[in-house]
């Protein structure tokens, strides 16, 4: 496997790994940063990290592309949050969030993972499902979600937390 060989400092394997994944990872980074040069700079850092951390990859925890995409997203989100002001200090009362998670439908059990996630997101109802996807795919902060969905920040936080609880139940987490 390319990641294992990369962990052994195999440059050819690393180059093959790069060629087979860089377009996807660049797509992830660029969708969030929306800037060519900055995205390329961050992508370099991401692959350096992949080179350095490849020995810590665990095949029983995640797929190679998920592991790499996670590194990509984490680095990218860190970058966009770096210069953003923190959200207000308003405390969230977790207990006030209604436990309206749903029991998963049997029909989902044999579905592919994405179909399952999509179904669970659809159960959240508009626009909360879209909000979760926008947060993940576009890297929106709570404040940006507030502006995009034209809702107060507190409402966004509540939607997020309630949506997560529902997803947790729906996806048996």
């Amino acid at each position: 496997m390319l990641l294992n060989k990369t962990a052994q400092q195999d440059r050819e394997a690393f180059a093959m790994l790069y060629h087979s994944t860089h377009r996807k990872l660049f797509g992830i980074v660029h969708r969030i940063l929306k800037h060519d040069a900055k995205s390329e700079e961050i992508l370099q850092e991401i692959y350096l990290k992949i080179w350095e951390k490849s020995s810590s990859y665990q095949a029983d925890v995640s797929s190679p592309i998920t592991w790499m995409a996670t590194i990509a997203r984490n680095r990218t989100i860190d970058e966009v949050r770096k210069n953003q002001l923190p959200d207000s200090d308003e405390e969230i009362d977790f207990d006030s969030i209604i436990d309206d998670s749903m029991a998963p439908e049997d029909a989902f059990a044999k579905s592919k993972e994405l179909s399952k996630l999509e179904s669970c997101l659809a159960e959240l109802g508009a626009p909360r499902g879209e909000m979760i996807k926008a947060a993940y795919l576009d890297g929106y902060s709570r404040q940006e979600l507030s502006e995009r969905f034209n809702q107060p920040l507190g409402t966004i936080k509540t939607w997020l937390h309630r949506g997560i609880k529902q997803l947790q139940g729906c996806m048996k987490l």
Partner: peptide, 9 residues
Amino acid sequence: LGTLDKNER
């Protein structure tokens, strides 16, 4: 999801 601010992250 990435919705936490930098301090929370």
